[in-house]
């Protein structure tokens, strides 16, 4: 232990020099690399390639030529696209608002001591996990104007039969009904997570201050779950914009094009007409629309989180 062995020291000092700093922290790149390759191949490559295709006249099975922004210019005057944009907005707004209200109400109900709470929650969550196509088929049967069970149920309370998805005026609200039925549970789960995070003391203190049930909800619960509500709004918005399976399986965008959203139009252009260049331009615009909306909502969330963190 006393005498320094001469060969060892220079060797180790030499060793010390080349990797000065950061040497001991193991590199985690090898763990990430395979995923990076996969993400590059199936996510990043499609993004880049989509942008490239959108700048070309590109049909499956024929020659391609670079056309610059021509596809985008075509989009701006494409009535069918603008119509689908309107359908998408209508569909999205309704499919965010309805699940948000119902989901919050459900979360408040599930946040109490209920018998069979776990089982009930399991049943409640089932619509969102079930295979969308399977659900869509059954809804189609239920929407049937003559034989469907929905019109029968309406007749029980004296409401005349509806055309549901078979009439242009009622098709989008009917699809929203399915979407709401399907996705209210997700809002419920998110809000329930928020409710679980609220401590008991503010309620007890409010009770002593003389607040009634509504006031407790308005001044304690609502501000404290508002960040969670914003998360629900963001996720719901993204999912509603992207909604495809339900609409495609029930109406294929019909009757006519009455329920054709951007996503369905994109499908038709790309895989019915095989006009992949123009389809890519739609995809790019659609993607930008989603990102833009998400950013706006994220910004709002930051403000919501900030003001509730402020205790206001």
């Amino acid at each position: 232990m006393t005498a320094v062995s001469t060969p060892a020291v220079p060797a180790s000092e030499e060793e010390a020099r080349p990797h000065k700093g950061g040497h001991l922290k193991p590199s985690y790149w090898p763990f990430v690399l395979p995923a990076l390759l996969v993400v590059g191949a199936v996510i990043l490559f499609p993004w880049v390639f989509t942008i490239w295709m959108s700048l070309n006249e590109w049909r499956v099975g024929s020659d391609t030529s670079f056309v610059g922004l021509a596809n985008y210019i075509r989009l701006a005057t494409d009535m069918r696209f603008l119509e689908s944009l309107w359908h998408t907005i209508l569909y999205t707004v309704l499919s965010v608002v309805a699940p948000l209200i119902l989901g919050t109400a459900a979360a408040l109900a599930f946040n109490t001591k209920l018998p069979f709470r776990g089982l009930l929650r399991g049943i409640f969550v089932m619509p969102m996990m079930a295979t969308p196509v399977a659900i869509a088929l059954v809804w189609t049967m239920m929407f049937h104007p003559q034989l469907g069970v929905l019109n029968y149920l309406l007749s029980l309370v004296g409401i005349p039969p509806q055309a549901w998805v078979f009439h242009p005026a009622s098709v989008i609200p009917s699809l929203v009904l399915v979407e709401t039925w399907q996705w209210t549970p997700l809002v419920m789960l998110i809000v329930l997570g928020g409710l679980a995070a609220i401590p008991q003391e503010p309620y007890e203190s409010a009770q002593i201050d003389g607040a009634n049930a509504w006031q407790k909800f308005r001044y304690i619960t609502l501000p404290m779950i508002s960040p969670f509500l914003m998360v629900a709004v963001i996720i719901r918005t993204i999912d509603a914009l992207k909604s495809f399976d339900i609409i495609y399986a029930i109406t294929q965008g019909g009757p006519g094009t009455a329920s054709e959203t951007i996503n369905l139009y994109l499908y038709s252009v790309a895989f019915a007409y095989y006009d992949v260049g123009y389809g890519s331009a739609i995809a790019v615009v659609f993607f930008l629309l989603i990102i833009l909306l998400s950013l706006v909502l994220l910004h709002l969330r930051q403000r919501a989180a900030w003001s509730s963190g402020d205790g206001k």
């Binding site: 993400v39 989509t50 295709m53 495809f244 790309a270 890519s280």
Partner: peptide
């Protein structure tokens, strides 16, 4: 594991954006 340990959660934005992207827009190029 690697992302969590590198504290590179910002890089997971790619994952978020992938979640926002409509499935169809992956479908055309692939």
């Amino acid at each position: 594991y690697g992302i969590a340990r590198m504290r590179a959660t910002k890089s997971a934005m790619v994952i978020m954006i992938a979640r926002m992207t409509p499935g169809l827009s992956f479908l055309i190029p692939l």
